[in-house]
C-alpha cells in the first residue's frame, strides 16, 4: 500500500494526520517493521493502532502491558484445570506417553494476544500498549516475535506466523526501552498538535459543536500547553472531553467564568488549577483597564 492509498484510507476513517505521520506509517507497512510510537500521554498513540485497523480493514488485538506481565498472560497458557480433568478421565484408558502427548496439544492451549496475532488466518493489527510499563524480561521475550514473526513454545516447538500482523508498540517513556527492541522497530515520536491540527480534530470528532467554541477551546488549550507553569499539559482526549462538556452544558462562549467552572476537564491537578486561577486574576485588571464597561474578554479564551 503506497502513501496515497494509505492517506485515502485514513481519510475514510476520519483520522486527522499530517504528511509525516502518513509517511512513517507507510514506511513501517512497506518494510513490514513493527512501529514504536513514543510521546506524552494523550497525544493519540493508541489511536494510531485503532485507525490502522480501520484503514487496513483488519481486526485489532490489544495487549495492555503492566508490571509483572509474563508470557502466560501475553502469549499462551496451558489450561491446567482441563489437563487435570483429562488425566483423571483418561487414566487407565490411554498409555501414559500418549496421554502426556495429548495434554500438550492445541486442545489445551489458551491463546493470548501475541499468539492469536500470528496464528490468525487473516492479518491483524497488534497493539502492544505501554510497553514501558512491562518488565525488561518481557521486552526481551518480544524480540523473537518482532524480528522473525515466530514464537517458541517449549512443549510444541516453534510457531511461525500464518499471517504477518502490523505491530504497533506505544510507550510513554516511563523507562528507556532496550536498544535491541528499538532497532527492530520503525520509530515515530508524536508531539502535541498545533492549533490547526487540534481544531481539525475537534471539528472531525465533534461536528455538532459550535465552530466558534471549538476555536476558543483549541486556542485556550494551546495557551495552557505553552505555559511553563502548567505541569500536566492537557492531552487531545482532554480537549475533546472539555469541548463536549461545554457543549453539553449549553455554553456557546468560553467566558472566564465558564473556563474556571469547567477547567477540571482539562487540568487534572490542584496545582495547575491554582495556576489557571492566578492567570485569570492577573488578566482581569488588564481587561478592566481596557474596557471596564463591557463584558470581559480577551486572553485565554478569546
Amino acid at each position: 500500500m503506497n502513501i496515497d492509498q494509505l492517506k485515502e484510507k485514513m481519510d475514510q476513517a476520519h483520522y486527522i494526520y499530517d504528511d509525516t505521520l502518513a509517511t512513517v506509517l507507510s514506511v513501517a507497512l512497506q518494510l513490514g517493521r513493527p512501529l514504536l510510537v513514543e510521546g506524552a500521554a494523550g497525544v493519540g498513540k493508541t489511536e494510531i493502532a485503532k485507525v490502522m485497523a480501520a484503514a487496513l480493514d483488519r481486526d485489532l488485538l490489544r495487549l495492555q502491558c503492566y508490571e509483572g506481565l509474563d508470557e502466560s498472560k501475553a502469549l499462551y497458557e496451558w489450561n491446567y484445570q482441563k489437563q487435570l480433568l483429562a488425566i483423571q478421565v483418561n487414566m487407565g484408558q490411554k498409555e501414559s506417553d500418549e496421554l502426556t502427548r495429548s495434554l500438550f496439544s492445541d486442545e489445551y492451549l489458551l491463546e493470548r494476544p501475541l499468539l492469536q496475532s500470528i496464528r490468525s488466518d487473516n492479518p491483524v493489527v497488534l497493539l502492544i500498549d505501554e510497553i514501558d510499563k512491562a518488565d525488561e524480561e518481557f521486552e526481551a521475550f518480544l524480540l523473537e516475535l518482532l524480528s522473525d514473526m515466530q514464537v517458541s513454545i517449549p512443549e510444541i516447538g516453534t510457531i511461525r506466523a500464518k499471517s504477518l500482523p502490523f505491530v504497533v508498540l506505544t510507550s510513554n517513556r516511563a523507562r528507556p526501552l532496550s536498544e535491541a527492541l528499538r532497532r527492530r522497530c520503525a520509530y515515530l515520536y508524536i508531539q502535541y498538535p498545533d492549533l490547526e491540527k487540534e481544531l481539525a480534530i475537534l471539528r472531525a470528532k465533534l461536528p455538532h459543536v459550535d465552530d466558534r467554541l471549538c476555536v476558543q477551546v483549541a486556542q485556550a488549550v494551546q495557551m495552557l500547553r505553552s505555559s511553563e507553569a502548567i505541569l500536566k499539559k492537557p492531552s487531545i482526549a482532554e480537549t475533546l472531553d472539555w469541548a463536549a462538556a461545554l457543549d453539553a452544558l449549553g455554553i456557546r462562549d468560553l467566558t472566564p467564568d465558564a473556563l474556571l467552572k469547567t477547567a477540571g476537564f482539562v487540568l487534572k491537578n490542584s496545582e495547575d488549577l491554582a495556576v489557571l486561577e492566578q492567570m485569570q486574576q492577573s488578566q482581569e485588571p488588564e481587561q478592566e483597564q481596557h474596557c471596564g464597561h463591557c463584558h470581559p474578554h480577551g486572553g485565554l479564551y478569546d
Binding site: 512513517v24 514506511v27 522497530c185 520509530y187 515520536y189
Partner: peptide
C-alpha cells in the same frame, strides 16, 4: 526531500534524541 527525510528518520532514528 521532506518525504525522504521523514522516511529515513523513521528507519535510522530510534528515539527523540536520535531524531
Amino acid at each position: 526531500r521532506e518525504q525522504v527525510k521523514t522516511a529515513l528518520r523513521t528507519v535510522y532514528a530510534k528515539s527523540r534524541e536520535e531524531q
